[in-house]
Amino acid sequence: MRKNTPLALVFNALFLTFMLAPLVVICLVAFTSKGYISLPTDGFSLRWFRAILDNPHFIDAFYLSLMLGFASATIAVSIAVPASLAFARYKFTGRAAIMAFFLSPLMVPHIVLGVSFLSFLTKIGWYGSFMGLVFTHVIIIMPYALRLVLSSITGLDQSAESAAASLGASNWVVFRRVTLPMIIPGVAGGWVLSFITSFDEVTMSVFVASPSTTTLPVRMYEHITETIDPLIASLSASLIFITMIVMLILDRFYGLDKILVGKGK
């Protein structure tokens, strides 16, 4: 390990300031008592946090996003587990091609997915339905779920499963009692990353969200393009607080870098 020079430490400080500045600013502005964007110079006020609760628009969108994230992450993980088992455990014709296919949504810009899903859902009459949203989100988050689940299965010592079989366990018992408990951390990590990715997604969702099924980021995006007011700041600040808590928990259990390495392409 080599020591960082003072210059490096200054660089690091500036870098962190750059990374945190916009988030810190949102959190500060959110406490203003004024009716426009300004720093809370005359004391912290919770006025705009209370205002969120009076705004069913955002509350509904928040719940919708929660349910959407829940449903799509759960579906994605539950189809990623068997698929990962196939990739990790079997050599079969087309294995590499199928794997590349499953990761390929990463190569498709979300805007392209958005326009495609819009035509598709309109065509089959699912535009504006919750299930339509769920399926499109599953496609977007599958690659992340698949990567984390796959890496936890590949890292598994297969001889533990052989040991269980030799001790008299049937295939299903081996899976339930040995394989699954051992990959649960990876599966849970994949679920959380999937959930967050779904919860945060805006570009694709802008197209497929209808007025009655609008996700929180889409509603916020639409709000921001019209006006930037303390209300949106307090809402954003609330999201930042929630994210911070989730992040600390994640970091505690997995290490943030390990989970997020899967997020790159």
Binding site: F15, L20, P22, P217, I224, S236, L239, T243, M247
Partner: peptide, 25 residues
């Protein structure tokens, strides 16, 4: 690990929120 949190943490926040921060700034 502290610095990592500060750098990677924003990835978990929606891009709309992060952009809002810059719009305010």
């Amino acid at each position: 690990s502290i610095c990592m949190l500060a750098i990677l943490g924003p990835l978990l926040v929606s891009v709309v929120v992060r952009t809002l921060g810059w719009a305010i700034l």
